[in-house]
Nucleic acid binder design. Structure first.
Lengths: 111, 111
DNA sequence: CATGAATACAACCATACAGTTGTATCGGCG
DNA sequence: CGCCGATACAACTGTATGGTTGTATTCATG
């Protein structure tokens, strides 16, 4: 399976509009590489490469169905990124709390 | 000020561990460029460039304090990325709901 | 108001990436 | 089995990126 889910690769993969759109479409997990390629104004091979990038990042997987390979996004990959952003938000809130504490402290000192 | 907050740049900026660490540290908004540079095993100029990338993406801003320029992360930039990931999650849930509907429908047909 | 600390910028190198075209492999189906 | 639909891969081009060193700018402060 070789499931990397490397944070660097996940964010790098999401930094391209074509790839984000592939991720969106592949949520339904119905289209093969060729169908996906049809939606973008670039060569088949280019889209194939984008999908390969997404695959290495762990954001999508491919599964053989009939004679096609269906691309499907792996929500867990999206959650890895989301959790990281959530941690930053937590730190931010922590900072706010510390600032509030400081203000409170100051006020008490002033009394 | 030139506040971009371009999604592409935000994700690209987050795709580097050094830059993510700068974002984390700059949440407290206390260190200047030189202090930040001290934490990483690379040249001052390299860190400066990383900060410039973060600035162009809208993830951090700089503010002159004394003779330093203090770097502080802009939470709104993080939220832009988070919202996008949230939308994917919504689509995913939507897909799950549609699948459930389909199953329900099938069951009813079987009855 | 001159000096030096702090930051910015330019030029350069190596490597990675997005796109192209062309060729090769793979596997379902007549 | 053999064809062909579908996918993969290789080689090449232009451009962006991460890193370096060196020089320029800026401005607080003694």
């Amino acid at each position: 399976m070789s499931f990397a889910l490397d944070v660097d690769r996940v964010f790098a993969a999401l930094a391209d509009p074509t790839r984000r759109d592939i991720v969106r479409r592949a949520i339904d997990g119905e289209e093969g590489v060729a169908e996906l390629a049809g939606h973008y104004p670039m060569s088949f091979a280019a889209v194939q490469k984008h999908i390969a990038v997404l695959e290495r990042s762990g954001l999508v997987t491919k599964q053989r169905i009939g004679r096609r390979k269906v691309v499907r996004t792996n929500v867990e990959g999206l959650r890895v990124a989301r959790r990281l952003l959530d941690r930053y938000e937590d730190l931010w809130r922590g900072r706010l709390n510390r600032m509030t504490d400081l203000i409170t402290h100051t006020k008490e000192r002033k009394k």
